Amino acid sequence: MQIRLATDADRPAILDIVRPILAAGDSYAVDRDLDDAAIAAYWFMPAHEVFVAEEHGQILGTYYLMANQRGGGAHVANCGYMTAPAARGKGIARAMGEHSLQRARQRGFRAMQFNHVVSTNTGAVALWQKLGFAIVGTLPAAFNHPEHGYVDSYVMFRSL
């Protein structure tokens, strides 16, 4: 598997990964009913450096890297990650997480912060903790989960 910068040719495959995850509404605080143009505008916004995880020509996952804030907070990175459903459990998310930490260091970021990790997304919470992130804040009932109702979200942080 290799992780590389996304190209325009990757957009359809990336949309095929991102579309159903956003529509499920259980892990991202983004509208669930976005059309393809809005999904592409979100994932490929100018502030995002977008990567894909690819194996044998098939895109298995994608992530973006950006500054978490502007100005005085621009030294802290932020990312969003998505793995194709058929590729889950194969270490893709972990590889993208490790790659993003390395890329953030290369870009001069001093830390990485996730602003809204949904507490019921236990696989993501556990992975980020294994990669050195700590839960530094709990946002009570901050996410309206389609199955569980209002659940907590976590702010997760680690220094680089």
Rank of each mutant, 00 (worst) to 15 (best):
A13W: 00
M1H: 09
T7G: 07
R11C: 11
A74F: 06
W128E: 04
D16V: 02
L22Q: 05
M156Q: 06
S153G: 09
A47S: 15
R19C: 06
A104E: 03
H99G: 06
K130Y: 02
H56E: 15
Q113Y: 05
A38P: 03
R19T: 05
K90T: 01
T83W: 05
G97E: 07
A24C: 11
V18G: 03
V125H: 13
P20G: 03
I3W: 04
I3V: 12
S119F: 00
A93R: 01
A93P: 03
A142C: 12
A53V: 01
G71N: 13
G71C: 09
Y42M: 15
N144R: 15
V30W: 02
A24K: 12
A67G: 14
V50D: 13
G97A: 12
Y28S: 10
E54H: 08
Q113V: 08
A37G: 06
R19H: 05
A67H: 11
T83Q: 11
Y63F: 13
D10M: 13
I135D: 13
L22T: 07
V52L: 09
A134S: 15
F114V: 04
Q129C: 08
H145G: 01
R105P: 05
T7Y: 05
V136P: 08
S153W: 00
G123A: 07
S27K: 01
Q129M: 04
G72M: 13
D35C: 12
F109C: 06
S100K: 08
Y64S: 09
F143P: 04
L5N: 09
I39G: 02
S153I: 00
A141E: 12
Y154Q: 03
Y150R: 15
G123I: 07
V117K: 02
N121S: 05
A87S: 10
P140Y: 07
T138P: 03
F157D: 14
W128C: 00
T120E: 00
D31C: 14
F109A: 09
M1Q: 05
G108Y: 08
G25K: 13
D35T: 07
I21V: 10
D26Q: 03
P85H: 13
R107I: 14
P140D: 01
I39T: 07
A93T: 02
D26C: 06
L127C: 04
S119M: 01
T83N: 07
A40M: 08
E98I: 07
H99C: 00
L101H: 04
R158W: 02
H145Q: 12
C79S: 12
T83V: 06
R88E: 09
L65Q: 11
G97Y: 09
N115P: 11
F133P: 02
R158D: 07
D8I: 07
T122E: 12
M66W: 04
D35R: 06
A111N: 08
G149V: 06
A74P: 02
V30K: 02
F133A: 11
T120L: 02
G61E: 01
Y81Q: 10
